[in-house]
Simulated scan of single mutants.
Amino acid sequence: MYRRYSDGMIEVITGPMFSGKSEELIKRIRILSYAEIPTLVIKPSIDNRFSNTDIISRNGNSIKSYSVSTTKEIKELFYQKKYKALVVDEVQFFDMSLIEFLDKLANQGIRIIVSGLDQDYLRRPFPIVAHLMAIADNIEKLKAVCLICKRAASCSFRTSKSDNTIEIGDTDIYEARCRECHVKDSSTK
């Protein structure tokens, strides 16, 4: 429908755990690479499930990235070179100050692609992702497969007893669930 997009834009890839967000992100990073668009790739240092430095999908695909903890570190890396794109994986782990920086860059013609969970394990929106979705030019909300009923899953269910909003884990403590199975099992806890 649209023949051309603006250079500066914000794209959000979201959905529950196990929905293929990292795979989609890696695909888009590779397309930027083929187009010879200088791209800074960031992942949060808190997410060291598969690698300290690479973004790795469950399909085994990977791409090099910088592992950082703060928006300040992202800014420092970004201004070291002439990047035309900035990619941030697991954006839900960053603070809200990142939003203003990403919006500013998009307004200056930089392509922004972020990926992250839209909801926590209680189905509450992650504020940073909700805000980025509101100002995004493009949103792709992926689905997983519900581990219980095998329907489309839009939620991440946590099997551990921790009450912490953030708990890094994988299939050891998380399952993809549809709304119905998530609500049913959450009410029996």
Rank of each mutant, 00 (worst) to 15 (best):
I74C: 08
V12C: 09
I113A: 05
L32W: 05
L122H: 07
K72W: 01
Q119M: 15
G109R: 06
L40D: 12
V129D: 02
L32Y: 13
G20L: 12
K141D: 07
I135V: 15
N48C: 09
D120W: 02
S22K: 05
R49Q: 05
Y83W: 03
D95C: 01
G20M: 11
A35Q: 13
Q108F: 04
R123T: 10
R124W: 10
F126H: 09
E90G: 06
K104E: 14
I46D: 12
P127E: 15
K27N: 11
Q119K: 14
K27R: 15
I128P: 00
S33W: 04
E140C: 04
A130K: 14
K21Q: 03
K21R: 03
E36W: 02
K84A: 13
P38G: 07
I13W: 07
K72I: 12
I74V: 14
I99W: 06
E23A: 13
S22N: 12
I139H: 07
R28S: 06
E23H: 04
F94M: 04
N107Q: 14
L142Y: 06
I63N: 03
D54E: 14
R58C: 04
K82E: 15
K21W: 06
I110E: 00
M133E: 12
F78V: 05
V114Y: 06
E23C: 02
N52W: 06
M133C: 09
V129T: 13
I26Y: 07
N52C: 09
L142G: 07
G20R: 04
N59E: 15
L122R: 14
F101P: 01
E73D: 13
I10P: 02
A134S: 15
D95E: 13
L142K: 11
R124L: 15
L40W: 08
A136W: 02
S97P: 00
I56F: 07
S62I: 04
S45A: 10
F101V: 13
F93N: 05
R124N: 15
I135W: 06
F50V: 09
Y121C: 09
E73S: 11
I113R: 03
V41N: 01
V129N: 06
L122T: 05
R30M: 10
L122F: 09
D120M: 05
N59M: 14
L25Q: 04
E140D: 08
E24V: 05
L117E: 00
L40E: 12
K75S: 04
S22P: 01
E76H: 01
L102Q: 05
T53Q: 13
S62M: 14
P16R: 07
K72C: 00
K143T: 10
E11P: 00
S51E: 13
D47Y: 08
S51D: 13
E11S: 11
M9D: 04
K84P: 00
S67E: 06
T70E: 05
D47V: 03
A134W: 04
F50D: 03
K141P: 01
A134E: 14
G20E: 06
I63P: 04
D7H: 09
I46M: 12
K104I: 01
P16T: 10
E100T: 11
N61M: 13
S67I: 07
L132D: 02
E73V: 12
S62G: 11
D7N: 11
E73F: 06
Q108L: 13
I37V: 15
R30H: 06
D137M: 08
T14I: 02
I55R: 01
S19Q: 00
L102I: 03
